[in-house]
Design a protein around this nucleic acid. Structure first.
Lengths: 217, 217
DNA sequence: GTCTATATTGTGATAGAC
DNA sequence: GTCTATCACAATATAGAC
C-alpha cells in the first residue's frame, strides 16, 4: 500500500536503467549519510537525484518515511554483514575476529559515512522501535561466536568472562578511528591516503591485539 | 565586541545567583548536547532556560553564535582534561594510561552526551576551523606522553611503532561504549545501572588490556 | 509520471512597548 | 533587561495541469 510499484511503467514510458524511484532513494541515502536527518532538506535530495521536488513525495510520501527506509536498510546491511561471519560453525573464535576485522574495515572503507550516520541518528530516533524491526538480538547475542566465547571462558582460555567487554573492544578498535576521522586527520595532520593506509594495517593488527587481550590477566 | 557584558547589570537591576546570560547558555548546552545543532529549535532553548525567545538573540545574537560558544567550550573542556594527564613529567606511560582511562570514563559518566555530540557535529561543522582555535595539536602530539611512547618503541618495549594506533585503541576502548550505548542497551537488554557498572569495571580493565597490547607482536 | 505553482506551517530573528 | 507581537523567509507537502 505504500509502494504502488517498484518502478514499473504503466504504459507508454520507456524505463531507463535505473528507475526514478531508485534514483531518489540513492540520492536520499547520500545526503542523509552526509548531513543527517535534521540538516537534510528535501530540496537537497531532489537536486542530488536530478529530479523535481514533487516526485520525492509522489514516491515516498514524506521525508520521514524516506528516512526510515534508509536507516533500516543501513542497519540491516550492517547486521547481515556481521551475521554471516559470527554464525559460521566451521571457524574458530580467532578466525572470526580476523574475518570480522577485515570485513568491517573493508565495508567502512567503501562507505565511510555509515558509522557516524548510524550513531548520530540513534541518539534522536528511538533505537528500541528501530531495532525491534530487525533480528539484532539473535544476530549478535545468540550467535555461534558468543557461544564459542562462553566455552573459551569455561576452559580458562579467556580471562574476562563478560563477552560485552570483548565486543566493545573489538568493535571499538574497528569503528572508532572512522568516527573520529575528521578530528584525527586535522589534529594529526593526516592525509586521506595516509588514513586509509592506517586502516589497512589495522586489518592485520587488530586480531593480534585481541589475541593478547584475551590472555591478559 | 561580541559580548557586551558578562552578565553585569548596568544599573537598577538586582542580579540573581545565576545570570540570565548564563541560564541561556546552560540551557543551550543541554539541548544542543541532546539533539545536535540542526534539530535544535531556538524555542526549545528558550523554554529550557525558562526565558523569552527574544532574550536569546539579545544576549547571543544568533543560534549559530551560541552554538559555536558551546562546541568550543566543550572541545576545550575535553582537551584540558587530557592535557594535564598527558603532560605530567613525573608519571610513566603505564600510569598515564591508567589516569586517562579513569579520568575520561568518570568525565563521560558525568556528561554522557558529550562524545556523540562532538562526533556528530564534527561531521557537519568544519573541524579545521574549530580546531584551529584550540591548542589541539600541541596538547596531543607534542605531549610528554607521545615522547615517552617514542622512547619505549626505541627501547623495544612496544611492538607497534605508530603511536596513532595506540591512541585509537586507548580512546576507542574508553569512548566507543558510550557512543553505542543506545544500541547496545537495546540489543543486549542492559539497564542503565548495569551499563554504568560495566564502565566502572573498564577503568581497571583497560590499562591491563593496553599493557597486553603493547607487548603483542 | 513529471512538472509548475502554491498552500501551510515552522523557525530564526527583530521592533518596539514597558 | 524583559516581554509581546510580528516579520521574513525557509521548508515540507500538495493541487492540478500536462
Amino acid at each position: 500500500m505504500l509502494k504502488e510499484s517498484t518502478g514499473m511503467a504503466k504504459a507508454k514510458e520507456k524505463k531507463p536503467d535505473i528507475s526514478t524511484e531508485e534514483k531518489i532513494k540513492e540520492a536520499a541515502r547520500a545526503v542523509f549519510y552526509r548531513k543527517g536527518f535534521a540538516a537534510t532538506r528535501t530540496r537537497d535530495i531532489a537536486q542530488e537525484a536530478d529530479i523535481n521536488l514533487a516526485l520525492l513525495n509522489y514516491y515516498y510520501r514524506s521525508k520521514q518515511k524516506l528516512f526510515e527506509i534508509i536507516i533500516l536498510e543501513t542497519l540491516s546491511h550492517f547486521l547481515k554483514n556481521i551475521q554471516i561471519v559470527l554464525n559460521d560453525e566451521k571457524t574458530t573464535l580467532e578466525q572470526k575476529v580476523q574475518e570480522v576485522s577485515t570485513a568491517y574495515i573493508d565495508l567502512i572503507l567503501r562507505e565511510p559515512e555509515i558509522p557516524t550516520f548510524l550513531l548520530s541518528e540513534m541518539r534522536s530516533n528511538n533505537p528500541t522501535e528501530l531495532l525491534s524491526k530487525l533480528p539484532a538480538r539473535q544476530t549478535i547475542l545468540d550467535s555461534v561466536f558468543f557461544k564459542q566465547y562462553g566455552k573459551a571462558v569455561e576452559l580458562g582460555k579467556i580471562a574476562e568472562p563478560n563477552a560485552l567487554h570483548f565486543f566493545f573492544n573489538l568493535m571499538g578498535m574497528i569503528v572508532f578511528p572512522f568516527i573520529t576521522k575528521p578530528m584525527i586527520m586535522e589534529v594529526a595532520g593526516l592525509s586521506k591516503p595516509a588514513f586509509n593506509q592506517l586502516m589497512q594495517e589495522r586489518k592485520k593488527l587488530i586480531p593480534t591485539w585481541i589475541k593478547a587481550i584475551m590472555k591478559a590477566k
